[in-house]
Design a binder for these strands. Structure first.
Lengths: 348, 348
DNA sequence: CTGAAAGCGCTTACAG
DNA sequence: CTGAAAGCGCTTACAG
């Protein structure tokens, strides 16, 4: 099947290629009869202009890349799979397609070069990277080369770079969690931190400390532990924490995110601690899995649809050189009270 | 930032564009010194060949489209979100990218034209469509126009079309379910059918009937109902079925898939029927959600990773004109016994 | 081993 | 209102 080109259409319709092009692009200066004549031939021959030709004359792909740079089982977490869907839907609402790419990690050069190539060869008009460390040299490199990059959970204080667009969790969630536990009467609060190379983890860590200090709560180092952002890492960290408590458990544990909280659940159950009777647990994120966990997890929920919509929209505005696009947006979370925390007598 | 082209590289390296091209494409007839000289200039200038130029000379995009043509909440079902991930990963293992596209439905012309355009404009080398009816004229049209299309759950008996590649659930699951229930002693078996425009639903329906007849079980029309493929449709159908039973309930219900089975759970709970004590329920698919449902759902599980790997691989082989690519593949399921069926005395 | 030329399928000034 | 020409960034025979 020989591919049909605008040249063929021109001949069949008895006009020049210029005119065919004008019709296709809907220019105003084509009289209705000519337009109809050409459209008829186009339809009859199932002609579709080839991207390859259009690209060369400066058209853009109308496609953004979506790079998932984090490990983890995407399909099992409604949270992470919603990132994909939200991005695709937000892009579609602006007439953009998305090229999806799952990288296992960004620690090897091969993967990094792959991402760079995709950005550089004109396959996408911009790219969104999710799950990268807050300091990733190749991202700076792409930005310096003029590529538009959208980032989720990535923030550099004081920088204002026109082609780097970010969306972040707001900076209060850690403190929000402590405030909430304080109100419930908790004074002995443990913290499982996330992965400190992620902006959100650093932020939450700071929030916890701020909250503890605000309420004059004693920060006991045996109740404070560095974890990670996965369920497994939460489980491991919680086990160490519980072990070294030597029965002097905190009354509540703040997990760096919901996945970690699920890990804490598992560790607690192994130690025979009932949630929330023996120990309260709070997550951050609002993963729907927390609705079905036992007990349902109290957490700070974020509207990820909103977050990705914001990110995608601003990335596309940047592609289209809209002026004054907001570079960095912080989205606030809201306390979702479920069943993993109990009221206790703070004076005890 | 002016875009750098192979011409610039040629000048900087003191060679012709032909040579630059030869180096980039790794042709053998370039002496090492020339190659190194050119590569050095390429690296220093962060030059990446533009797709736009390459496309015009016959290169392919190395990208397949993934069209999700079904409704439903993708993010909440580990099953459906695994379809995306499995496709992306299978494609990546062959060096292909995937352009993902979520269509709400294929009932309106606008969506159909959108899909056709994406196929036709040379943006993808082939496309995979999931969730389409088994008879969808525009798919035939794409195939006639020579496009390579991969289809999940789509089969036309007796046709053998070289550019239509399919993967399907094998044709035994319905019968497998009846066999299993029969072995448990069930004789009064109800069936909730799916959406009969889907190949899998037709297939399962036939399987149920085959199984019932094989075991000489009476097919009572009040225990047979057309449902759909979503949880809501399963719920609605089950309510009607239970209502019209007038207490003469079947001892087991076969759901057309797991989502429908979850709908049956909900309806049963409203009718005060305990699963599996009062009524047994079997699904088909192997959705991981069934692991956490109450009670965990007995089902026929399919290896979707395998299914998508098979589909993607054969689609890519077809793009690359590999001879004798298998057009239609059926993947067998396996009984996953959980807690939703009980043994009863068949003679009762 | 390497360069000059032609060509891929479009669009965009330019001229009329 | 419309056509002829040039050009976008590559690769591929062809010639040497």
């Amino acid at each position: 099947m020989k591919r049909i080109t605008s040249n063929d259409i021109a001949k069949l319709a008895n006009v020049s290629r210029s005119t065919v092009s004008r019709v296709i692009n809907g220019y105003a200066d084509v009289p209705p009869e000519t337009r109809e004549k050409v459209m008829k031939v186009i339809k009859e021959n199932h002609y579709y202009p080839q991207l390859s030709g259009q690209l060369l004359t400066g058209k853009l792909m109308k496609t953004i890349g979506f790079f998932w740079a984090s490990g983890g089982n995407i399909a099992n977490s409604p949270l992470t799979s919603s990132f994909f869907v939200n991005t695709i839907e937000a892009a579609a609402s602006r007439g953009y397609l998305v090229l999806t790419c799952i990288l296992n990690d960004l620690d090897n050069d091969e993967n990094i070069n792959y991402v760079k190539k995709i950005f550089m060869e004109g396959r996408i008009d911009a790219g969104i990277i999710v799950g990268a460390d807050n300091n990733e040299p190749f991202i700076d490199e792409l930005i310096e080369l003029g590529k538009i990059v959208g980032l989720f959970d990535y923030y550099h204080e004081g920088e204002n770079i026109s082609n780097r667009i970010t969306v972040n969790f707001d900076r209060n969630s850690g403190e929000q969690v402590i405030d909430y536990l304080y109100r419930l009467g908790h004074r002995k609060i443990g913290v499982i931190d996330g992965n400190m190379s992620r902006y959100s983890s650093m932020q939450r860590h700071e929030g916890y400390l701020r909250g503890m200090m605000k309420h004059n709560l004693r920060i006991q180092s045996k109740w404070l532990i560095y974890g990670g952002i996965t369920e497994t890492s939460g489980y491991e960290a919680a086990k160490i924490l519980l072990e070294r408590c030597d029965k002097d458990y905190p009354t509540a544990i703040c997990a760096s995110n919901d996945a970690v909280a699920f890990g804490v659940y598992k560790a607690c159950s192994e130690y025979g601690l009932k949630i929330p009777d023996d120990i309260s647990v709070v997550g951050i994120d609002g993963d729907l899995n927390g609705l079905y966990s036992n007990p349902p997890l109290t957490t700070i929920s974020f509207d990820f649809k909103d977050m990705f919509y914001s990110l995608v929209t601003r990335v596309i505005d940047t592609i289209n050189e809209k002026p004054d696009v907001e570079r960095d947006v912080f989205i606030p979370g809201s306390l979702t009270e479920r069943k993993s925390c109990k009221y206790i007598d703070g004076a005890m």
